[in-house]
């Protein structure tokens, strides 16, 4: 196992290096000029050129890359071209909201979707099954921003239970923190619940048709025991895989929900940086994302061995 872990970590290094080079090249080859955005709409080309020179953006691409890579090797992600904030600080400011949203969304999704998927498989063809699958289709089909707006209207405006927008750090109080995160988490959880419930049902259906399940029933084991200990345990590998993908997507890809609820997460930081061509910020975030993806995949691979003793590395 340890050998596998070390091998995987070592294998991740070239992946991150390739991602780094690819992202750097892609960003700098794409049209756009941060100097022009800094200078403002009414600046002249001469003003823009002077700012570009000050930022070092008129240097050959290779020099710019090696300057950045050199900083990176010293553990410095550089500074934002615009605000001059260190990129690590910008990412640090966004980590708490992003992780909070990720954990809460997964908590709600797993808590509700796995039991729903298990029950749907157990009662396949019944109204419960059809209801769960109908809900899954709904969860997939309705765009997140629509769900967000409806939740805001009901729970923030009409009932006045929760705030419309914003994020309060946990350090400023438990209820302010929780109240800000409920609606965006539920918004996101609907889609993930749909996904996890469908996968759980499909995996469970396959497992429930196995001979050992029939044997368990024949031995007189209680249905919950059969479903949870025998069936769900063996159906867990695809479910864990989907949850792992969900974690990776939630860390970087919830821009719409972050925008609707004004949550200052990593997704919005990424989009803002891309729109402004804030190269150091984009490069830093992509680096963090690629590291997070590698880590999540590693954890999922580890969990496989726990859930299925047949899997050995």
């Amino acid at each position: 196992m340890y050998v596998f872990l070390i091998r995987r970590v070592l294998a991740a290094i070239p992946v991150v290096v390739v991602v780094t080079i690819f992202v750097f090249a892609l960003l700098h080859l794409a049209p756009g000029d941060p100097a022009a955005i800094i200078a403002g709409d009414l600046a002249t080309a001469e003003d823009v050129a002077k700012i570009r020179a000050k930022l070092g953006l008129d240097q050959p691409l290779m020099i710019q890359f090696f300057t950045w890579a050199g900083q990176l090797l010293r553990g410095d992600l550089g500074n934002s071209i615009f605000s001059a904030h260190p990129v690590s600080q910008l990412i640090g400011q966004r980590l708490e909201p992003t992780l909070t949203l990720t954990v809460m969304t997964l908590f709600i999704s797993i808590l509700l979707a796995v039991p729903l998927g298990v029950i749907a498989a157990w009662r396949v063809g019944s109204w419960i099954d059809r209801g769960v699958m109908g809900f899954a289709v709904f969860g997939f089909s309705v765009p997140g921003f629509v769900i967000g707006y409806v939740l805001i209207w009901v729970f923030a405006i009409e009932l006045d239970w929760l705030p419309v927008q914003g994020y309060t750090p946990l350090a400023k109080g438990f209820w302010p923190w929780l109240s800000n995160i409920i609606l965006p988490s539920v918004t996101l959880a609907l889609a993930y619940m749909a996904l996890i419930a469908r996968i759980t049902r499909a995996a469970m259906l396959e497992t429930l048709s196995q001979d050992y399940i029939r044997t368990a029933h024949a031995k007189g084991l209680a249905t919950p025991h059969v479903l949870l200990r025998h069936a769900l345990h063996n159906a867990a590998v695809p479910i864990v895989t989907v949850i792992g993908i969900g974690v990776a997507l939630l860390i970087g890809g919830v821009v719409v929900t972050e925008s609707v609820f004004a949550i200052p997460g990593l997704g919005r930081l990424t989009v803002d940086a891309i729109l402004r061509r804030d190269y150091p910020v984009i490069q830093g975030i992509i680096l963090v994302f690629s590291g997070a993806y590698v880590l999540v995949n590693l954890i999922v691979d580890m969990l496989y061995t726990v859930l299925d003793p047949r899997i050995r590395y």
């Binding site: 707006y149 405006i157 006045d160 914003g166 609707v260 609820f261 004004a262 919005r268």
Partner: peptide, 18 residues
């Protein structure tokens, strides 16, 4: 200054007094 990128959310926040 609170940056609210979604215009509809900004309006709802104004209506609610946030």
């Amino acid at each position: 200054w609170l940056v609210i990128p979604d215009s509809n959310t900004a309006v709802q926040a104004l209506i609610k007094g946030e």
